[in-house]
């Protein structure tokens, strides 16, 4: 157990190392991505708040990721249930289809989506982004949910149905609770992919909907300053606060039990 703990500590250090550097750098007084040596400064935090573009982009991204993750985890559960519990023609096709979207290089899908949403009059709408993001993230939520449904013995559902439950009731009362953790994992994966997606979004999004990653990516096109580091640092702190809040509300214990 001690070895496991030590190993985990090492991995956590590896995970956090570049982030800690960015956090540290965000306090730089310099106008470059340069680590502060003797003085710390909050100027880039001021800059970040002085530019409403970033703040608006953050709220847009959060909204988009939330809608995307909700839609994706529900639809992925339904689809995963069908793929695991039923044998029907075309099952393999659906499996392949659901895995395909993140395999197409972002540029290609992005340009294709831009042409397409433009043709159908959805260009520069929030729903165009939702459609694209759900398509991109769902397959990944689906995989982990699928694996978990497979681990729930179908006998349990049959037993419920023998006792008079409908198939739907059996699914909702037996399978959903038993796979809740995987659905949650799927939700989280969907959320973070959507929140960070840039290569597809950059092409297809209209001027009214610049997501945060797209905004940051564009910002660094012909200039550089640590504003973006300050924003990243604030994101880390914000999610930490969110987890603390959830913990306070008692959400974490129930979630992991």
């Amino acid at each position: 157990m001690i070895w496991l703990r030590l190993f985990n500590l090492l991995m956590a250090v590896f995970m956090l190392a570049p982030l800690v550097l960015i956090l540290w750098m965000s306090f730089t007084p310099f106008e470059m991505f340069r680590l502060p040596t003797d003085t710390l400064s909050l100027r880039w935090y001021r800059e970040a708040f002085n530019y409403p573009g970033f703040l608006n982009a953050f709220f847009l991204s959060a909204r988009l990721a939330l809608v995307t993750a909700l839609a994706a985890s529900v639809m992925a559960f339904l689809a995963a249930y069908a793929l695991v519990r039923f044998r029907f023609p075309g099952r393999r096709f659906f499996e392949a289809l659901f895995l395909a979207p993140l395999l197409v290089p972002g540029v290609v899908l992005g340009i294709a989506l831009l042409q397409y949403v433009n043709a159908i009059g959805l260009y520069n709408t929030f729903w165009a982004l939702v459609l694209a993001h759900v398509a991109i993230v769902t397959p990944f939520a689906l995989r982990s949910i699928q694996a978990q449904i497979r681990a729930v013995p179908e006998d349990l559902e049959w037993a419920a149905m023998n006792l008079g439950a409908s198939r739907l009731q059996a699914m909702l009362r037996i399978t959903v609770p038993l796979t809740a953790r995987a659905v949650l994992a799927g939700f989280v994966l969907a959320f973070i992919i959507s929140f960070a997606e840039v290569t597809v979004t950059i092409f297809m999004t209209g001027p009214a909907y610049p997501t945060l990653p797209v905004r940051i990516y564009n910002y660094l096109s012909d200039q550089v300053d640590p504003t973006v580091a300050a924003i990243s640092a604030m994101l880390i702190v914000l999610s930490l606060a969110l987890v603390l809040l959830l913990d306070r509300l008692g959400g974490l214990r129930t979630l992991a039990k």
Binding site: G121, L122, T125, W127, P207, R215, N218, D222, Q223
Partner: peptide, 24 residues
Amino acid sequence: ALAPSAALAQGKEVHLLSWGGTIQ
């Protein structure tokens, strides 16, 4: 997708496609 098509403000809006750095 039930969303309505993007409302293009007629006549009064002009769109510039360019960089997101110094230009923005």
